[in-house]
């Protein structure tokens, strides 16, 4: 694995200027179709998605990052479409094979750095939806190799300011 990096994946364009070791990706500007569940990335071309769109540029960066920030609108207590589509397309960084993590069965990771995650969920989110989202990120932590994570709920109006504040914390 080459040098570590920091990655910000956002479902919307934001006016932020992260430092050089941080890559910002506005997923809404990319062409990413949904996973078709073919298992090709596990059983035909292991580690590579058979759909050759912009997602194939993103999931290697997820694997290489030791800090990630995922910024997403939520829907029914989960990620909304743009972020969820990318996360589903990131399964080539896992293997088909199963292992035990904290006593639960999960997929084995390929060359994926353990990572510290900041998840910024925005929009109008009810208390019930917040609880579901927290449970979801706990599950993601097992499946996406998070060593630790922080969830921040914010409004659409406060999003840019919230992200700037979190990026500043990374830079300290």
């Amino acid at each position: 694995m080459s040098e570590k990096m920091k990655l910000i994946l956002s479902d919307t364009n934001l006016n932020i200027k992260p430092q050089n070791d941080t890559t910002f990706i506005d997923l809404s500007s990319l062409k990413i179709t949904n996973c078709v569940g073919c298992f090709g990335c596990w059983t035909k071309t292991p580690g590579k998605c058979v759909i050759r769109d912009d997602a194939v540029k993103v999931y290697p960066l997820i694997a290489k990052s030791d800090r990630v920030m995922y910024i997403s609108r939520t829907k029914y207590g989960g990620y909304d479409t743009v972020m969820k589509t990318m996360l589903e397309r990131a399964i080539p960084i896992q293997k088909a094979f199963i292992r035990l993590v904290n006593g639960e069965t999960h997929h084995v990771q390929r060359d994926v750095l353990p990572k510290s995650a900041t998840i910024i969920a925005y929009g109008e989110i009810s208390d019930e939806e917040k609880e579901i989202f927290k449970d979801l990120i706990l599950r993601n932590a097992y499946n996406m190799n998070f060593t630790d994570y922080n969830i921040i709920f914010t409004s659409e109006e406060m999003l840019e300011e919230t992200v700037r504040g979190e990026v500043l914390k990374w830079e300290k």
């Binding site: 829907k75 989960g78 479409t81 399964i91 979801l136």
Partner: peptide, 14 residues
């Protein structure tokens, strides 16, 4: 899918 509803279903629900 990835710990929650597949996008195919999510988009239909929306």
């Amino acid at each position: 899918y990835a710990d929650s509803l597949p996008v195919t279903l999510l988009n239909f629900l929306k």
